[in-house]
Write a protein that binds this DNA or RNA. Structure first.
Lengths: 232, 232
DNA sequence: CGAGCCCTTGATGCATTTCAACGAATGTGG
DNA sequence: CCACATTCGTTGAAATGCATCAAGGGCTCG
């Protein structure tokens, strides 16, 4: 039940999650001290579930290394992927009765686990922290609206192009090259298309010279402008 | 700059928005007093915009009578409808820099307009009210996730069936009969399909005896069970 | 080297879009 | 009050994008 808040990966994850100027927020330091006492690092192997739908939402989670996927499955076996989470993203923020989705480890990963009770106690003491957290919720809401917009508007190949630009931005660390931690099936379930359509999309973008595929998961965007205009 | 909080429609709208037990929340009464002083009723004619994308998000809005539609349009003229709002729903809750969508009046309507500054002041004074508001945001987030799920999973006709069940629930006031305030085009843009596909969906559901169409906008669900299993 | 897994590619069929015409309801001006 | 225009919804036919079914290829691991 303790967290080494001096570890670089943890500092990085927290500041990426709560924002770079979080330390200036009143109560931020107290919050971090509480994390040091009560939060934990937890490891998950690839394919394990960090939490499942219907679990009581006792914690929120911040990936420190590795990737997660938020998904909801139906009785009939089909699945919708809601989001992919990387270092410093936040999972499980706003459900009350139970989670409405599961979080699955895409890779071996380490997550920071924070109890909701701790969050709530800090919110009660430090409204500024609560406000920041609420802003984060609003930001996530707007990201989901963007996703909804894309799902409603674009053709399958356009959605894929859009997805790749998002991944380039989030995984590329300033370069055009990135490693996808998820399978074609995961991508397809995220974008609401079949595995085959996703695969054909990759092939087409490659053939048209917009991306290159070093290996199945290693992608480079070779023509950002065209990819952007294709995704438009 | 004042609101008659004793008017029945206003009481109804507020309690439907903030929840029936809101009065028991610490600070709820103070909040309502502030509304009485600073909030306003504003009227809009059918087709007018309550707010537009890129407006500074100065207010939040609660429809008191009539219906709103939240939409985002592209330069190329296409449009995604994010939600339909009726009495007691909430619009504009969580954007920071600007709204990421516009709110259009589907009918002549009256909305309660509350300044964000007032909300923030109350939140600072009464964390319980802030908490309730945050819970509402979380609830909306889960509604949008449901919508995203539906968009990713279902066929066009299934999405339409799902939509009609939602409208029955929200507009039917306990009966199976309801009046749709939006056009076929609006429905199509909400569900990510063409106007014609939406229309064919209505026709099919009617032919199969799951709904009856008294007029273009007056719908009765005649076989709930079948409609539910069709939407599943 | 073979097994298993994931990805790719091809062929086919179906769902949905697009294009086009028609019909119903509403409003307007002669 | 009736012709006419306008708007919105329905329906049909053709075209197309995507899913599905099916086979094959490449990679990894034992």
């Amino acid at each position: 039940m303790s967290l080494d808040i001096n570890k670089v990966v943890i500092k990085t994850s927290l500041s990426s999650c709560f924002g770079s100027h979080f330390k200036e927020v009143e109560g931020a330091n107290a919050f971090i001290e509480e994390l040091a006492k009560d939060a934990e690092e937890v490891s998950f192997a690839q394919g394990e579930y960090v939490f499942k739908e219907k679990d009581a939402p006792e914690y929120v989670y911040i990936p420190e290394s590795g990737s997660l996927m938020l998904e909801r499955s139906t009785a009939s076996g089909s699945r919708q992927v809601f989001a992919f989470l990387f270092t410093g993203n936040l999972a499980g923020l706003s459900e009350n009765v139970s989670y409405s989705f599961s979080a699955k480890a895409l890779t071996n990963c380490v997550v920071i686990r924070i109890s909701r009770k701790l969050m709530q106690d800090i919110f009660d003491k430090y409204p500024s922290v609560a406000k920041r957290y609420h802003d984060m919720t609003g930001h996530i809401l707007s990201l989901i609206l963007d996703q909804l917009f894309i799902m409603g508007q674009k053709s399958a190949h356009q959605r894929l192009a859009h997805f790749l630009l998002d991944m380039e931005h989030r995984l590329g660390r300033g370069t055009h090259r990135f490693f996808l931690p998820m399978s074609r099936q995961d991508i397809a379930d995220y974008l609401g298309m079949s595995l085959e359509t996703a695969s054909r999309g990759f092939s087409k973008l490659k053939k048209d010279g917009l991306i290159s595929i070093e290996s199945n998961y290693q992608i480079t965007v070779t023509d950002s402008e065209k990819l952007i205009s294709y995704a438009d």
